[in-house]
Amino acid sequence: MPVAGIDIGSLSTEVVILKKEEMLAQVIIPTGANSKLAAEKAMKEALEKSGLSFNELGYIVATGYGRVSVPFANKKVTEISCHGKGAFFLHPGVRTVIDIGGQDSKVIRLSPQGKVIDFVMNEKCAAGTGRFLEVMAHALETDLEEMSRPSAPSVKTANISSMCTVFAESEVVSLVAEGHPREEIIKGIIYSVVERTISLARRVGVEEELMMTGGVAKNIALREALEKSLGIKITVPDEPQAVGALGAALLAAEEAVK
């Protein structure tokens, strides 16, 4: 029986439809202002892709911030469990998952059986999250693509000392005004997210293998910097954003056979 997982994040919404661990459809759309509408739209698209009708779905698990606003879900599970589940499914060797999403970053520790044994999340503010990168890109009048390009090792790292998104933004603006090269500033921004992430990861401890999920995992510069700082290789799945939805779908499959 086909099942679905849906992950409604602050920036994007993903749906995965599975049938016996085979992926029938995967959809990623921006969440926009109304998470309920986004959920309905993503689900509709995924059903069209898979050629199924809604009634054929045996079980639906919703996750992400918008999980509470999915009326058609059978069960709601946090993105912590879902990212753990999805990451372990893709790579059974994974013991640590770093998920940097739109407004949250989290580090999840898994047991050899794939069970979540500990997790930490960022404190209230958005520093070190996808939202932080977006705000900084905006301050630099650039896009996330440029932010993601790895810079040459010779490029210096501008010092972004402020811990707060709002102050860091004004710091970036003054660095621009002082004539610092853009690539140095970008490197500084990436560095500050990396350091924050590591600070979070140390609280639960990092054990290999490490997988990175969430939209920010696509940022190559950041991933490379993180690998360098931690001294371990990081696995990134093809669609890091969809790992949460995949995990949700896997949980749905477990529920469906109960």
Partner: peptide, 14 residues
């Protein structure tokens, strides 16, 4: 130190 206490925040509250 003049800079940002990233690593320290693994141990001390912000």
């Amino acid at each position: 130190r003049e800079g940002t206490p990233f690593s320290a925040d693994s141990y001390l509250h912000s």
